[in-house]
């Protein structure tokens, strides 16, 4: 009984050491900008950099649009598959998992070739077209997480009975999805949304190759040119991820309260 517990503590301690050292190291490094003393100079420099504000707000807006598009595509599909085409589920699930197998750099490479200025759909020809393409790219990247979250959420409710009950009360499809299904999977959708946000904010490859002024390429640029500011940016990025995960936790915590415990 005692021996495994000792091993558990050792495994946990070593793991935590590995995870916390880089975090402590980064924080410490970000405070070193002023020679001989700790200061927040690096953070001040970052926040005063107009490029930081521009790229950051660009990525936030992109993330929000990605979430909306992702939800609009995933929720009705996951619902529809459960309701009408349960036999298609393995296929749809397979497709949604593809972005985990096909590297993002390959996908964006395909975009560049497929939607170039001389193609049938010259999206990369204009800035707004490229933005649209990038957003779709982000939606693709977040597809596995979003679909899984929503599908798991749908599993906990009886989709068919809820739908039939709503139909028997005279509800039409938009009402059913908007007023009956959505509220029931809202928590799942929210956790998918926060994850999407975390992914989009730091994404580098797609934005860099599509040449959009996003936060990821900005980070890389600062990293190549400055000494202490990258550490400050890493701390900021880590905090953003923390906040997103915290919100996911909060969302799941809320579900647990809204559902009676099973005995």
């Amino acid at each position: 009984m005692k021996a495994p517990r000792v091993w558990s503590w050792i495994a946990l301690t070593l793991g935590l050491l590995y995870f916390f050292l880089p975090l402590i190291g980064t924080i410490e490094f970000s405070l070193r900008k002023r020679r001989g003393e700790y200061s927040l100079d690096a953070y001040r420099w970052v926040f005063e950099d107009p490029k930081f504000r521009e790229t950051f707000s660009y990525s936030v807006v992109m993330a929000l649009f990605t979430i909306v598009v992702g939800v609009l595509i995933v929720v009705p599909t996951a619902y529809w598959v459960r309701l009408k085409f349960p036999r298609l589920r393995p296929l749809v699930e397979f497709v949604t998992l593809l972005p985990l197998v096909i590297p993002p750099i390959v996908i964006v490479f395909g975009y560049i070739r497929l939607y170039n200025t001389s193609s049938f759909l010259p999206l990369t020809g204009t800035a707004s077209g490229t933005n649209l393409l990038l957003m779709m790219g982000y939606a693709t990247l977040s597809l596995p997480y979003m679909y899984r979250a929503v599908d798991t959420g749908l599993r906990t409710i009886d989709v068919r009975t809820l739908t039939e009950a709503a139909q028997s009360l005279g509800a039409n499809w938009p009402t059913i999805i908007g007023r009956v299904i959505m509220p029931n999977v809202l928590v799942a959708v929210m956790s998918g949304a926060f994850l999407t946000f975390a992914i989009v904010i730091g994404e580098f490859v797609m934005a860099a190759l599509l040449n959009r002024p996003a936060f990821g390429p900005y980070l890389q640029l600062i990293g190549a040119n400055r000494a202490y500011e990258p550490a400050a940016l890493a701390v900021i990025a880590f905090s953003i991820t923390w906040i997103c995960m915290g919100l996911i936790q909060l969302a799941t915590l809320l579900t647990r309260h809204s559902r009676p415990p099973r005995s």
């Binding site: 050292l21 410490e28 730091g202 990258p230 990025a237 995960m245 996911i248």
Partner: peptide
């Protein structure tokens, strides 16, 4: 620990590189 894993598994990309440079780079803390 599970929450932290959720954070760390998404803490990839450019900032992760910065964190390790600040820790194990030539002037890093460790």
């Amino acid at each position: 620990l599970l929450t932290f894993s959720g954070v760390a598994s998404n803490f990839a990309g450019v900032p992760l590189a910065f964190a390790f440079l600040a820790t194990l780079g030539r002037l890093g803390l460790v």
